Simulated assay, not measured.
Amino acid sequence: VTVKALQNRIDYDFRDAAILKSALTHRSASKDHNERLEFLGDAALGLAVADALYARFTDASEADLTLMRVELVRGSTLALVAREIDLGSYLSLGAGERKSGGRNRDSILADALEAVIGAVVCDGGYAAARDVVVRLLKSRLDLVREHPIKDPKTLLQERLQGQGDDLPDYDVVEKTGDAHDRRYRVECRVDSRQLVAFGEGTSRRDAEKEAAHLMLKELEKCD
């Protein structure tokens, strides 16, 4: 399997092949792994999806746009997209991860896809990365409004119940701004997993949704 084939699949030619190699390298395989690129790609992905949704659905409310964004950037969605471009075949994994089926693990695939997006940002800038994201998610962007989307808090509760974990606790840890311009910072805590995530929003409910979304991402990394 050649890296050129992957570039054809995402319809982007890297000028610097080394950065794509880093994006495809799991931490189990090398010290020069993809986690920093994953961090960058996660941010670029979120902005690119927000851009696309804002432009497509001009009558959608902030709440609707947020739910659609959460659906499109969640780990399980990214893993499906990664499988569609056969991303697992291009990954460099340590022996243990290879033997345990790492090439087909949702968390590894989702992280690697974000890393590839981050690599495009470094190689060609945000606009190039945005175009890659829109191409990869095109069919889902076209359909995302036609299907009912569950609130991140509901998704988190269902996932934890299904795994026999404690239900999440939400606490407001900070309120800033005047009454007409309030912002909330909320902590979401899952004691049985010893995990904490923080979300922010203009209402407590929005901050809780963001915290639940980030907690789902943390749980996906643990799988």
Rank of each mutant, 00 (worst) to 15 (best):
V73A: 06
E220D: 15
L93V: 15
Y170S: 13
R185Q: 02
S139M: 15
Y90H: 14
V132C: 00
K153Y: 09
A60L: 10
F14H: 01
H180W: 08
G88A: 11
C122P: 01
F198Y: 13
L214E: 06
L109Y: 00
D166V: 06
L160S: 11
R74T: 09
G96W: 15
I10P: 00
K150H: 03
D64N: 08
L155A: 10
I108H: 02
R74S: 10
V196Y: 03
L67A: 11
K150Y: 12
K21F: 02
V190P: 05
L47I: 06
G177I: 04
R183Y: 07
T176H: 09
A197T: 07
R83D: 02
S92D: 13
E71Q: 14
L40P: 00
L45Y: 11
R69D: 07
T77P: 00
L109R: 08
N34H: 09
E158Q: 05
G118M: 05
L136E: 08
I117C: 00
A211R: 00
G124D: 08
D142V: 09
F14M: 02
A128Y: 01
G118C: 07
L47H: 02
G96V: 13
V70A: 15
F39W: 08
R105P: 06
L93Y: 08
A52I: 10
T154D: 13
I149L: 13
L156Y: 01
D59K: 12
E35Y: 03
D51K: 07
Q157N: 14
L93C: 06
A119L: 09
A115D: 06
R9I: 07
L167Q: 15
K21A: 12
G75M: 12
L155P: 04
Y170T: 13
Y12M: 10
D223S: 05
D51V: 02
F57M: 06
I19N: 02
L78S: 09
H180D: 09
V120A: 04
L214R: 10
Q157A: 11
I149S: 06
A5L: 14
P148D: 13
H213T: 07
M68P: 00
I149N: 04
E200F: 01
V121S: 08
E210G: 02
Q194N: 12
S192E: 14
V120I: 15
N8I: 06
N34Y: 04
